[in-house]
């Protein structure tokens, strides 16, 4: 613990004071650096948009999903399927409750289709139409502002 300078009893009071001051200065600066650096890093806005931090997430424009079409988009950490039917826009979790495959839109039959085992879901309610899924797709809230589609992640 005791270092070379401390073991020296013959130092004058002046240099002792200077040493103490230098040590205290080092201590203060290094501690402040350790504390301030992460805080500054934290304050710098991250590259990804704050929209990803929950709440309303912009998933595209109405032009991306014309009537009779559907699209899988990422919302936060979960894939979500947006479908545009005669009943308007609907959003559902895109994870099939059967084995966790990601569902797709089947334009031929106008249903949400799980490609793995042919599970079919109602595009307006998310309910199972046929196939092995034990339950329907949970609905997500979707809103349109101007021509932008937002999903309210839950």
């Amino acid at each position: 613990m005791s270092q070379q300078p401390t073991a020296d009893p013959g130092t004058s009071g002046f240099s002792r004071r200077r040493l103490l001051a230098a040590l205290a200065g080092f201590s203060i600066i290094s501690t402040l650096t350790m504390i301030v650096a992460p805080i500054l890093g934290f304050l710098i806005p991250p590259k990804t948009s704050g929209a990803a931090a929950g709440g309303k997430v912009l998933v595209g424009t109405v032009a991306d999903i014309p009537p009779g079409q559907g699209k899988v988009v990422p919302v936060g950490s979960s894939p979500t399927i947006i479908v545009n039917t005669d009943q308007g826009l609907n959003a559902f979790s895109a994870i099939c409750p059967h084995l966790g495959c990601i569902v797709t839109w089947d334009p031929g039959s106008n249903v949400i289709l799980c490609p793995c085992h042919d599970g079919r879901f109602n595009p307006t309610t998310g309910a199972v139409l046929s196939g092995p899924p034990p339950s329907g797709l949970p609905a997500e809230e979707v809103t349109v502002e101007d021509d932008q589609i937002f999903v309210v992640s839950s």
Binding site: A52, A53, G54, G55, G76, S77, E141, V152, S153, S154
Partner: peptide
Amino acid sequence: EAAYDSVL
């Protein structure tokens, strides 16, 4: 709606 995602 946002709490979990904002913490993430």
